[in-house]
Design a protein around this nucleic acid. Sequence first.
DNA 1: CCTATACTAAACCTCGAAGTTAATTAACCG
DNA 2: CGGTTAATTAACTTCGAGGTTTAGTATAGG
Lengths: 111, 111
Amino acid sequence: MVDDQLDLVFAALADPTRRAILARLTGGEATVTELAAPFAMSMPAVSKHLKVLERAGLISRGRNAQQRPCRLEAAPLADVAEWVQTYRRFWEGSFDRLDEHLQELQGGDPA
Amino acid sequence: MVDDQLDLVFAALADPTRRAILARLTGGEATVTELAAPFAMSMPAVSKHLKVLERAGLISRGRNAQQRPCRLEAAPLADVAEWVQTYRRFWEGSFDRLDEHLQELQGGDPA
DNA sequence: CCTATACTAAACCTCGAAGTTAATTAACCG
DNA sequence: CGGTTAATTAACTTCGAGGTTTAGTATAGG
């Protein structure tokens, strides 16, 4: 709902490294070292990416000895889905702009 | 499919001005001047935002006298929807991480 | 032709994102 | 305690995003 939050989430998703990290986390928790392994990038760089994801609410972090396991927190993606959902009728269907406009005026949904 | 394209789209969406422009365009085509009106921002700034949206494939531009009407091109949002869709089961449902992992291994869906 | 209108291009500024290396904290382990 | 592993912090660099103002390009129209 807060627009700033959507900013953070979209910005976080705009980086392929971070999307790859999220994809990795669908397989379960992982430590920073594990997450960093696939990338040709230093550990602090990955640590920064994780901070971006955390600020966006897309991951949370636990504690296990010296390790800080990351877990996926997908809730903000529901907001993304909701936002994009409002545009669905603009990529589905084959009506032209005039039809779209009429549709909007009438609040109708041809699906 | 092309990861770079998703980068461009997410990055374009990470700015509230640009999302507002897209929202405006759901009401039909608009000129740059019309799009710029609601914002406390110079016209060149809006012009740059439009270029970002265009590069992401989210708008296209026509020509009408001196005006360059913009129209919404929502197709890239389908890619966004598809991407986010793969995470849906991670924000729906109330199972914990272990369950998620088992679910993934079994390819099951408890919904 | 001249001028106003609509927009883009150019030049510039500032700030933060993304990366580096080196230093620091924290926890385990022999 | 001393050393190793895991991760963050700090200091620094580079680059591009987002904004500005000023200048340039088209096109409409008196």
